[in-house]
Design a protein around this nucleic acid. Structure first.
Lengths: 189, 189
DNA sequence: TCTCTAAACTAACAAGTGTTAGTTAAGTGT
DNA sequence: ACACTTAACTAACACTTGTTAGTTTAGAGA
């Protein structure tokens, strides 16, 4: 029986390297060196380089999907749903900063799971957009272009992985609150 | 004398491929095939793969630097300076969507120019942050965390390259206006 | 003590990498 | 007709890539 924990160590280490240089630029020998072993030894624990990427990305994508399901089904106002989305991103990103880098930058190197990933992402964005449109209909939100609103929010949320590691002093709750404020209420006086 | 235009065709084609798969995953043979020639023929026009990346990224980075200089030195209010930054990003990104992808995702594969690039980026962010802090001091802006404000705006602006190609109907001026509104005035009613 | 297993190792592979050298074909100016 | 230039070509290089096969080492359970 292969040890699950050793496999997870490999995935964690790979995430860190993938964040720094991207999936394609990281070799199995790089990864092995970072683990203090030889490249061939990695294959006692994982099946392929591809599988590492898949393990990193798909689990996070599914976290987002299930988080969005909960939000959509909740009874909150549309603005509160948007705040919950912000919190969802902050929480997932805080827990796995490095993995988020791969999700954002290396998804195109998924092979077998590419279609599945795109489907999850598409559903996610459809739900996000729906909340915004409902928010506009109910006059909770300004009547701006809903796609611009989503694009703006999502861009910020997707970049969190770059920024959270630099701001360890700020805890997740405070960050989610400040970010919601800026994104929803704007910055002008 | 080598033809400059052929070299530029290579750079344009490379930008497109780099956007799709990232610098490391694009081979010189991929690039040559996309140009309808053989890999070795590329070297009649360029010195190395590295040089292509450098040509793509550094020229854009310098455009941002000089644009920021103009904005910083202008007499506009701080809010208007922020609006000018939005316009700067929309314009540069509209003109070179593919190149912006490399700037955002492949800068770490610069070798000789890496330090120079990081210096330009750092200066840019310092100026950006300064405008925001001045805006807060003068009560033009809400007293939120200036770094969160910059992070949020910059994330959105840096992601424009993903979004502009999908929205060819919207012209650059309209996009800059809508985006400024959303970013500065927020989305709630 | 014997056996089994986890997890490392060495050695090697076939394919793919960026790049160089030398050659060729098609124009261009004299 | 001539030499020159541009921009392609073929062939090959040294190195790197992901991965496989078979072996060794150390610890755990009987």
């Amino acid at each position: 029986m292969k040890s699950e924990t050793r496999k997870e160590e490999i995935i964690v280490t790979a995430s860190k390297l993938f964040k720094e240089k991207g999936y394609s630029a990281v070799t199995m020998r790089d990864l092995a060196t970072a683990m203090g072993i030889k490249a061939a030894s990695l294959y006692n624990h994982i099946n392929s380089k591809q599988d590492i990427l898949k393990a990193i990305i798909i689990s996070i994508a599914e976290e987002f999907t299930s988080g969005m399901q909960t939000i959509i089904q909740s009874e909150a106002s549309n603005i509160d749903k948007l705040k919950k989305i912000v919190t969802l991103h902050v929480n997932i990103t805080s827990r796995n900063t490095n993995g988020m880098a791969s999700l954002n930058n290396d998804w195109m190197h998924l092979e077998d799971q590419l279609e599945y990933y795109l489907q999850l992402r598409n559903e996610y964005e459809t739900n996000f957009l729906y909340i915004i449109k409902e928010g506009i209909s109910s006059t909770e939100l300004k009547n701006s272009n809903p796609e611009i609103i989503m694009f703006s929010m999502l861009s910020t949320l997707r970049s969190l992985y770059l920024w959270i590691p630099k701001k360890e002093d700020l805890n997740a709750n405070d960050l989610a609150t400040s970010l919601s404020e800026v994104l929803i209420e704007g910055i002008n006086n």
